[in-house]
């Protein structure tokens, strides 16, 4: 975009609009010039290894830290100058537990409601609604410390939802959960996003980032890549479709005619493509032969990260 629009608070501003964001801790440069724009209603993932600057960016957006330079707007409001106004619009799930373990889930949500300005009756009602919505009403009257890790994380999510926020921020929200609990958790977050809430989350698990609409890869305090999960994977040069048909010769001829370039030779037809999963249905519909077997190899986000940075995701940013 040659001429970015002027930054005036319009009717539907970007959910997150970060420009030239820099954050230093003493001599440590945690963020070295980050630009990100997240639209309303998007589910957006910030993916990177430990120490890449994810939590710092999250904390600035969550109004818990102030940037060294650059600007960050949430829903069109400045996170420093208009802190109090956007706090009303945000729900936040932290890495570490932020519910009072010795109180019941219901009490925790009730108290959060009070902190967000609801009346006593209003806060009680809202607590029940959220518990109902997340399907944890039956756990609500137990002390939080008696719940499982996954149930507690759901309670954290419920806590973030009490104020009915327009945007949800989650920082490594499933740290320490098993695969099953993680899947359930993200399923629930996904349906919140599908219902129109903006979700911005950080993670270092690539399979988690895959549920997002768009992903920003962050490393050493800068965004190294940004796009939909498909786009990012396509950066590797795409993936491979392999097909077995009842008439490979005829299939190859058709493919060549339609602009595809099948690899020569082999029992199967190998086809390199930027987005193999998207092209497969088209092939299956249009090939004039019967396809007996179809396979797609897609590179993982871990492969993408490795290619872009030369290091794996698990290793951490510190050399």
């Amino acid at each position: 975009m040659p001429n970015p629009p002027a930054r005036t608070p319009d009717a539907s501003p970007a959910a997150v609009d970060v420009r030239g964001l820099v954050k230093h801790y003493g001599s440590v440069e945690a963020l070295r010039g980050v630009d990100v724009r997240v639209e309303q209603g998007e589910m957006f993932a910030l993916l990177g290894p430990n120490g890449a600057g994810k939590t710092t960016l999250f904390s600035i957006l969550a109004t818990l830290r102030t940037p060294t330079s650059g600007s960050a707007l949430v829903l069109g409001r400045d996170v420093v100058a208009e802190r109090d106004a956007i706090r009303r619009e945000m729900g936040i799930v932290f890495q570490e537990p932020a519910i009072e373990q010795r109180l019941s889930g219901r009490d925790n949500l009730f108290l959060m409601g009070l902190l967000y300005g609801l009346t006593i009756a209003g806060a009680r009602k809202r607590a029940s609604e959220v518990l109902e919505q997340l399907g944890i009403s039956d756990l609500a009257d137990r002390r939080a410390q008696q719940l499982s890790g996954g149930q507690r994380r759901k309670l954290e999510l419920a806590r973030a939802l009490v104020a009915d926020p327009r945007i949800l921020f989650l920082d490594e929200a499933t740290l320490g959960l098993d695969v099953d609990a993680r899947r359930t958790f993200w399923g629930q977050v996904r349906s919140l996003a599908d219902a129109g809430r903006t979700v911005f989350f950080t993670t270092h698990y690539m399979e988690e980032a895959d549920v997002a609409d768009r992903i920003a890869l962050i490393d050493f305090g800068v965004i190294v890549a940004l796009g939909t999960p498909r786009e990012l994977k396509a950066r590797l040069g795409g993936g491979i479709v392999s097909l077995t048909t009842d008439d490979n010769l005829r299939a190859r001829a058709w493919l060549s005619e339609h602009g595809f370039e099948p690899e020569p030779g082999g029992q199967e037809i190998m086809l390199l493509h930027a987005d193999p999963a998207a092209v497969l249905p088209e092939l299956l519909r249009n090939l004039p032969v019967r396809v007996e077997r179809a396979e797609v190899h897609v590179p993982s986000l871990a492969d993408v990260f490795l290619k872009l940075t030369g290091r794996g995701l698990e290793g951490g940013s510190k050399p």
């Binding site: 109004t63 818990l64 009303r88 936040i92 537990p97 932020a98 959060m112 902190l115 300005g117």
Partner: peptide
């Protein structure tokens, strides 16, 4: 826990 209180309006 305090963080949750701190980000409340």
């Amino acid at each position: 826990f305090f963080k949750a209180v701190l980000v409340a309006p």
